[in-house]
């Protein structure tokens, strides 16, 4: 039976790799579809046609797209992300520091949002139909419905402009003490926690409610089990699969989807880097950022799938 788990897990990994390949293909060709010629934009309006031609040759832009794709993908596999068109720096260097910033923000947000979301989701399911449950449900729907920039700008308005408690911008590089850390991360983390938790709360609540109505939970009740025991010993282990998946989906959003939050708070993360790269038509940078987002997404969802497979006793 162990083999079945192993082969299922391996097949998930294989699917992830194939997805990655397809995405790289899509990313590359989507970015080459961007209007405008990179060489002439880089050289500006005063450039002579010969200069543009020369630059095109130097950047291999005259080759067919498929060769450029292969050149790029082979580079990626060797760890060479390419060189930025805009300032000739290595893309790896550009992204490196930013990526750590993004991970920091995602990590701190996950640290707060996951326990909060799970606690709220599970308790709401346990007290289903109560005032508490209804309050949680209404609040989560409310939070889902409010766009992120609204929460972010409101937070800036309240905490930075009126109360002057927190800085409006987050310069992550200036952290010297724990108090600084709190001050700088507070607002982006609050904003992201709002957006990310709502989905997790709803999914957790639904999954736990579903398992709570199964005959084996009723059986536990008839064995004299207390309510917490029914939930934590009987319902939760069987609700793990869907919960882990909801958490992974929410967290993967933190890696790539935080453009709005990073922009509003001027937080130096990868998402903001990518937006800037689009403005300067810096293709290697855009492509690398897109690939990083995709990789993070796949990593999280695949991990969730594998946890769900391993936690299913029928496959053991």
């Amino acid at each position: 039976m162990k083999n079945r788990v192993l082969s299922l897990a391996l097949s998930r990994l294989l699917i992830a790799l194939i997805t990655l390949l397809i995405v790289s293909f899509a990313v590359f060709f989507a970015t080459t579809l961007l209007p405008g010629d990179t060489a002439s934009i880089l050289l500006g309006q005063a450039a002579t046609p010969e200069a543009v031609e020369g630059l095109r040759k130097a950047m291999h832009l005259d080759e067919p797209a498929i060769f450029r794709f292969l050149r790029w993908i082979v580079g990626l596999l060797q760890g060479d992300l390419g060189t930025s068109y805009a300032n000739n720096m290595l893309v790896a260097d550009l992204i490196g520091g930013r990526f750590i910033n993004t991970l920091k923000l995602a990590g701190v947000t996950a640290l707060f949002s996951v326990p909060i979301a799970l606690t709220l989701g599970i308790t709401a399911a346990m007290l289903r139909g109560s005032l508490y449950d209804r309050a949680v449900t209404v609040l989560t729907i409310g939070v889902i419905s409010v766009p992120e920039f609204m929460i972010a700008t409101s937070a800036v308005l309240v905490f930075a402009v009126y109360m002057k408690w927190l800085p409006a911008l987050s310069f992550a590089n200036e952290v010297t003490s724990f108090a600084d850390l709190l001050r700088i991360y507070a607002m982006p983390v609050i904003t992201l926690t709002f957006g990310v938790s709502a989905q997790m709360i709803r999914m957790t609540r639904a999954a736990v409610i579903e398992t709570l109505s199964t005959p084996y939970v009723e059986m536990a009740l008839l064995k004299g089990a207390s309510r917490p025991r029914m939930v934590f010993r009987h319902a939760l282990p069987n609700a793990l699969g869907p919960i882990v998946n909801a958490v992974a989906l929410s967290l993967s959003y933190l890696l790539g989807g935080v453009i709005i939050v990073e922009t509003i708070f001027n937080y130096p993360g990868v998402a903001k880097l990518m937006v800037d790269a689009v403005a300067t038509r810096d293709l290697p940078l855009i492509q690398s950022c897109a690939m990083i987002f995709c990789l993070g997404y796949l990593l999280l969802t695949t991990t969730a799938d594998i946890i769900a497979i391993v936690s299913n006793p029928r496959l053991r």
Binding site: M219, L222, K223, P237, N238, S311, P313, R314
Partner: peptide
């Protein structure tokens, strides 16, 4: 009292056993 003085044998044991334990 449940389980000690009065106990229950369900209609479908297949559904009444927790699959994860």
């Amino acid at each position: 009292i449940r389980g000690t003085e009065v106990a229950y044998v369900p209609q479908s044991a297949a559904a009444a056993f927790n699959p994860a334990a």
